[in-house]
Simulated assay, not measured.
Amino acid sequence: MATPRQHRTAARVPPAATPPRRERVAELVRRHPLACYLFLCFTLTWLAWTPYVLSDNGMGLLSFGFPEVLGSPQTLGMLPGAYLGPLFSAYLVITIAEGEPGLRTWARRLFRWRIGWCWFLLILLGVPAAQVLGTFFLPQAWETVQLPSISALLVYLPFLAVQVAFTGVAEEPGWRDFALPRLQHRHGPLAGTLILGLLWGAWHLPLFLTEWAGWPHVDPVQIIEFLVTSVVIGIPMTWVFNRTGESLPAVMLLHAGINNATSVLWLPMFPELDVHRDAQHALLITSAVISIALIAATRGRLGYQPPTNRHV
């Protein structure tokens, strides 16, 4: 039994100080950086995309439409959410969790251009060639194929630069520069890539309620095929990332090249095909063939080298 003196002594001991809310949030981010990145990435992007989804460019629940900028309403409807999600979320989480050392590692990958001209040549020529050749797996492609016009060839590189600045810069600093190294370190290159591909595909889901995916003519099969394609296409992207010494410009060029080849070359070459369905079929077939070859050739390692005493 405690004496009155002991009770008085115990009463004078101050309670343990509760950490301020900012400290608790920072500790949560430091302990779970990947989970915090994913939460912020999905939340910020989907909130920013909500007006686009509800507008006349989407479900039509709000009576306004986004004006065309650079030839498309998607520029204003989609890009703010794309930048705000992957890019800003990665920057914010790294700043809180790792500080300047982590930001330096992140930035080094972002500006790693010196990878050899052969890689850039492979991506510049290989991506459109693969997409066109993959389309010929579709029987109806042979009936309507046309040679690309001179104008399409002339605008290919300028439009590619725009795609890199928009799509590549907006998405890849988050998905490939931040998330991929952590997932590879935790789950291995193949499993980490498959997980990332599914998350990356799911991040696009609200856009299926907009003109981007052909709304309202969207069905569940189209959505499932897009998710599978996102998973499969991530395998060559991981291989390029790993084999170029984690060069983000190479991955941004690859990502932008896929989008650019579809809009600039594929559409005029196959005018009778459906860009929302047939182009997706062709991309899935092409990506699957390349991915199977890469998995077999690398035995599932995809060029991965485990990190040694550095931020991932």
Rank of each mutant, 00 (worst) to 15 (best):
S151C: 06
L124A: 08
A279G: 09
P307F: 01
L76G: 01
L183G: 02
W113K: 13
A11F: 12
R108P: 09
R186W: 10
G81R: 00
G174T: 05
Y156G: 00
W117P: 06
L79P: 08
V228G: 05
A165Y: 07
F111C: 08
H187D: 04
F166R: 15
R182L: 08
S287W: 04
V275S: 04
F137A: 14
A2Q: 10
G71I: 01
I258W: 10
V231A: 09
G201V: 11
L209E: 03
G81K: 01
F208R: 14
V29G: 02
V221K: 09
V275F: 09
F88A: 13
S230F: 11
E272T: 07
H311T: 12
S230W: 13
A165S: 11
H187E: 10
L194P: 05
F241P: 03
G81M: 00
F226Q: 07
I233P: 04
V145R: 03
G58F: 13
P51M: 02
T135C: 00
L284F: 15
I195M: 14
C36V: 13
F88E: 07
G116V: 13
E100R: 13
G197K: 12
V251W: 09
A130W: 00
A256Q: 01
L103N: 10
P220D: 02
G257F: 10
G245S: 05
S287G: 10
L253A: 04
Q74S: 13
P249K: 10
L190M: 04
R277G: 00
F226G: 03
L147S: 09
E211I: 10
I295K: 02
L84N: 11
L38P: 04
F120L: 11
L198R: 12
L254S: 09
V289S: 01
V228H: 09
R243Y: 11
G60C: 06
Y52W: 12
G81P: 01
T229K: 15
A141H: 03
I195Q: 12
P51I: 00
P73K: 08
G168A: 08
S89K: 01
G168C: 06
P148T: 05
E211Y: 11
R310M: 02
R5V: 10
T244Y: 15
V93T: 05
T9R: 15
P15T: 01
L294K: 01
G85C: 12
T167C: 12
F226R: 10
W203Y: 12
F39Q: 07
P51N: 05
L79V: 11
P173T: 02
L38G: 04
L124K: 13
H276C: 02
W215F: 15
L302G: 02
G168W: 06
G58E: 13
A141L: 07
C41R: 08
L76C: 02
G77Y: 07
T43W: 06
W200C: 07
L84D: 14
P220C: 03
Q131S: 06
L84S: 08
S287K: 05
